[in-house]
């Protein structure tokens, strides 16, 4: 049947001849109207989009406070992103839902693209257990690249070019230099934190602080408790490791930093049994009523205050 069809079509083509001249090659885009907004789902994307095109043209499509690795866009959020002139996202690593949603590639800008390959931080795989449960393995790259002032600046430059060109003529330009000044202030706060630590290590429950610590030259010890607010017992190996780190007085700052959700029960236990004061640290990944840079800067200031000599 296929051969017959091919033969018939070949015949039809043959009968057509080639009388017509080449038609124009200009294609026409569809008539679907796009909204002159930048859709964002994360705190860093909102910060940089607002800096590039003004807050009025930034549209949140994810709810506040939901961790980026757990959010799944509903149909309304997908429609909002598809109809926006640009969608600014972190990338597949930072927002895993992107691997399962069909955003338009030509209108989707990824902040991860501004991060050179050699600047990514990988954390090695390790085998561990939850309490008495089966052992399992974790590993991969750390996604909180925006916490490095230099990388944040690179993302800002890249996204400004991409977003302004897409939305040009659609509204007032944001005040020049505003973001740079704020990044400078954040960087200064980081430098002050490093000075206050004076070579002592920070102990954290999450790898999310890797980039800012690398930038500031701060030694970071991470022990992943994996409490995740589920009421499950902490990872035994991590607790043992934490106890060892806490015992190294003078080598660490005497604080347990929680870049993820702080567990009050464990925090109290760490204070009483290990002498580690818990400090909440907001990495600014999620959407919130305060922007990412404000939360980061305040977190660093709070941490510096916590480790200051009493």
């Amino acid at each position: 049947m296929g051969t017959v069809r091919t033969l018939l079509l070949s015949t039809a083509i043959a009968l057509c001849g080639c009388s017509d001249q080449l038609a124009g090659t200009e294609g026409a885009h569809g008539t679907t109207p796009l909204r002159s907004v930048v859709a964002v789902t994360s705190g860093p994307a909102e910060l940089l989009a607002a800096a590039a095109v003004g807050q009025a043209r930034v549209e949140r499509v994810a709810p506040s406070g939901i961790p980026l690795d757990r959010w799944r866009p509903d149909d309304g959020a997908l429609d909002a992103m598809v109809s926006a002139r640009r969608v600014l996202v972190l990338g597949d690593e930072g927002e895993p839902w992107l691997q399962r949603a069909g955003l338009p590639p030509s209108r989707t800008a990824r902040l991860e693209a501004a991060v050179p390959v050699e600047r990514w931080i990988e954390v090695g795989s390790f085998t561990h257990t939850h309490g008495g449960g089966e052992s399992h393995t974790h590993g991969g790259v750390v996604v909180e690249t925006w916490t490095d002032p230099d990388l944040l600046r690179a993302m800002a430059r890249r996204s400004a070019v991409q977003l302004r060109s897409a939305l040009e003529g659609g509204g007032a330009a944001p005040p020049p230099g505003g973001l740079d000044g704020r990044i400078d202030a954040y960087a200064a706060e980081l430098t002050a934190l490093a000075a206050a630590l004076d070579g002592r290590a920070l102990i954290a429950t999450h790898h999310g602080m890797e980039y800012l610590c690398r930038w500031a030259g701060i030694r970071l010890e991470v022990t992943e408790l994996e409490l995740e607010g589920s009421g499950a017992p902490p990872n035994d190996a991590a607790v043992r490791e934490l106890a060892e780190l806490a015992g190294q007085e003078g080598a660490q700052a005497g604080v347990l930093v929680w870049p993820g959700r702080l567990d009050p029960t464990f925090a109290e236990m760490a204070q009483q049994e290990l002498g580690l004061r818990s400090v909440d640290f907001d990495l600014g990944g999620t959407l919130s009523d305060r922007d990412t840079l404000t939360r980061l800067t305040q977190s660093v200031a709070r941490l510096r205050a916590a480790i200051a000599p009493e």
Binding site: S10, T11, I13, A14, L15, C16, G17, C18, L22, T25
Partner: peptide, 18 residues
Amino acid sequence: TSVIDDLLGVVFRIKAFF
């Protein structure tokens, strides 16, 4: 358009036969 024109041109002789 160029490819389709080329395709039609290649088989033009068959059209003359028909």
